[in-house]
């Protein structure tokens, strides 16, 4: 599991890689939140293209960041999602939050 953070202007991108489950979610969350606090972006992109597995712990991670960003009016966007991970996100109804769309999905 690793998270690489990159800033371009007011956009902060978190490149997630490895397996995202209850065990790894805490470290990912802490790293992303520290970077949000430091950079105060207007948009956070969570890039899942390096994620090889995700269960509903990933939904908790996304929803938690959505709440953190909403406090400052910043937006969240999700990219690089495989069809299997999209199944979990769809089950959680994430499309309704407008954080992902069909361009978020990739095929490996």
């Amino acid at each position: 599991m690793s998270v690489e953070m990159k800033t371009t202007g007011e956009v902060l991108t978190a490149y997630l890689s490895g397996e995202l489950d209850h065990h790894t979610a805490v470290a990912m969350r802490n790293q992303i939140d520290s970077s949000i606090e430091l950079n105060m972006p207007t948009m956070l992109i969570l890039d899942f293209s390096g994620i090889t597995f995700m269960d509903s712990s990933g939904i908790g991670l996304i929803m938690g960041r959505y709440r953190v960003l909403s406090k400052s009016g910043a937006k969240l966007h999700i990219s690089g999602v495989t069809p299997q991970i999209y199944k979990v996100m769809k089950l959680a109804g994430l499309e309704r939050l407008s954080v992902l769309d069909e361009t978020s999905i990739i095929n490996r």
């Binding site: 979610a25 509903s56 712990s57 908790g60 991670l61 929803m63 979990v88």
Partner: peptide
């Protein structure tokens, strides 16, 4: 930060 989706995922 638990999503409360564990059993929903298992069912689906």
């Amino acid at each position: 930060e638990r999503a409360g989706l564990g059993f929903s995922v298992m069912q689906t």
